[in-house]
Amino acid sequence: MTSRRAFMIGMMATGLCPVPSWAEAGNPNYLAAARRPDGGFELAGLDAAGNRVFRVRLPDRGHAAAAHPVRPEAVAFARRPGTFAIVLDCRTGREIARLETPGGRHFYGHGSFSTDGRVLFTTENDFEAGQGVISLWDVTKGYGRIGEYPSAGVGPHDICVMSEGDVMVVANGGIETHPDMGRAKLNLPLMRPNLTYLSLDGVVLDQLELAPALHRNSIRHLAVRADGLVGFALQWQGEGGESPPVLAVHHRLGGLALRLFEAPMPEQRRTKGYAGSIAFSEGGDLVGFTSPRGGVLHVFNVTSGALAGAHRIHDVCGLSSAPNGFRYTSGTGDIGRAGAGAKTLTVVATHDCQWDNHLVPVPV
């Protein structure tokens, strides 16, 4: 991710400074959606100690958010098949813009800014065609919609613009859905999830599929290490008694070929075939995922592939990097830190809410 300082220098060169910064919103380290005690919903900014530095109400349940690289702006996305994506001024809670898809589309709950902060990319479902779409929004012109192209797969869920700035990676989950059918999965026998690398103008640069025996392992969520190593979390759509791997890494340029991570049995069965969120540790030597269905957080050594930590956390889901490991959130309102060892689990704060699926880092 381009540093704030470099971005500010670029903005100064175009005569657009001064601009507000994340410091004016309380210097949050993370963004997280939550359900409030009154039944409403919000997007919160959290600092490293787990304190809420801002809270903004949402019209319905949120899923994830995208944080602007410099300005204190966040795009809050509805949970699939929700249709809202709201751009918020995190200093004031003011709605800056509301993104609307064309007819026959809905968002998938994720988006990613270009490294210079000028374009927002979102994943969408063209549900009549049964195909995925990446849409582009011009941040400099009030988040107006300026284009789209195919995601090169079905059910694009998560998306990340990589640190080199001219490549994005897309998790095409492979599951066809239609809002008239709620959250029903319409093509499980034929699904073919893939991990796709696109140029920012939509050219397919590379694409990865899992082995045919794992074709029902939906690729859902992403984490990208600074050197371009991509971690992806999977959700098994096959038989309930099976326990396939739900965590993998891949490097497009050959730094590390595809690797699937599995814990020894019976620990692997505790995941229930479902990975919720994924993150690399701050140093990049560890990769972890949460399973809210299983109530576990598994941590692996990236180099050896060995299980480095297995933590029991009720209703855990949100996960992000932190010094010496990870920060996590749970549906119980807890915010905690976790490392590799069995004794490196600590609750740092508890709030009167139910944290939702993801804990999104704010760029620094």
Rank of each mutant, 00 (worst) to 15 (best):
S3W: 11
A6E: 15
T14N: 08
L16S: 12
W22V: 04
A25T: 01
A25Q: 05
G26T: 01
P28H: 08
N29F: 11
Y30V: 01
A32P: 01
A33F: 07
A33V: 02
R36H: 13
D38T: 01
F41D: 03
G45M: 13
L46M: 12
V53M: 10
V56G: 04
P59D: 13
P59K: 08
H63D: 11
A64H: 02
A65Q: 04
A65F: 14
P69A: 11
E73Y: 08
P81N: 08
T92P: 00
R94K: 12
A97G: 10
L99E: 02
G103E: 11
R105W: 14
Y108A: 08
G109K: 00
G109L: 02
T115I: 09
L120P: 02
T123Q: 04
A129E: 13
V133C: 07
I134F: 12
L136M: 15
D138N: 09
V139P: 02
T140K: 08
Y143G: 00
R145C: 14
S151H: 04
D158A: 09
C160T: 13
V161A: 08
M162E: 10
M162F: 11
S163N: 14
H178D: 11
P179A: 10
D180M: 05
L186V: 05
L186A: 06
L190P: 10
L195C: 11
T196G: 12
L198I: 04
D201G: 08
V203E: 15
L205C: 13
L214P: 04
N217T: 01
N217H: 09
R220V: 06
L222K: 03
A223R: 03
A226C: 07
V230N: 01
G231L: 02
A233H: 02
Q235R: 05
G238Q: 04
G241Q: 12
S243P: 01
P244Y: 13
A248L: 06
A248W: 00
H250V: 15
H251R: 07
R252F: 09
R252S: 15
A257K: 03
A257M: 14
F261H: 05
E262M: 07
P264L: 07
T271F: 14
K272H: 13
Y274R: 05
S277C: 10
F280Q: 00
E282P: 00
G283C: 05
G283T: 04
L286N: 03
T290R: 03
G309I: 03
G309Y: 01
I313F: 13
L319H: 15
S320N: 10
S321Y: 03
P323I: 03
P323V: 05
P323Q: 13
P323D: 14
G325S: 07
G331H: 01
T332G: 09
I335S: 01
G336A: 09
A338G: 06
K343R: 14
L345C: 12
T346C: 09
A349C: 11
H351Q: 12
C353S: 07
N357H: 14
H358Q: 03
V360F: 00
P361T: 13
V362T: 05
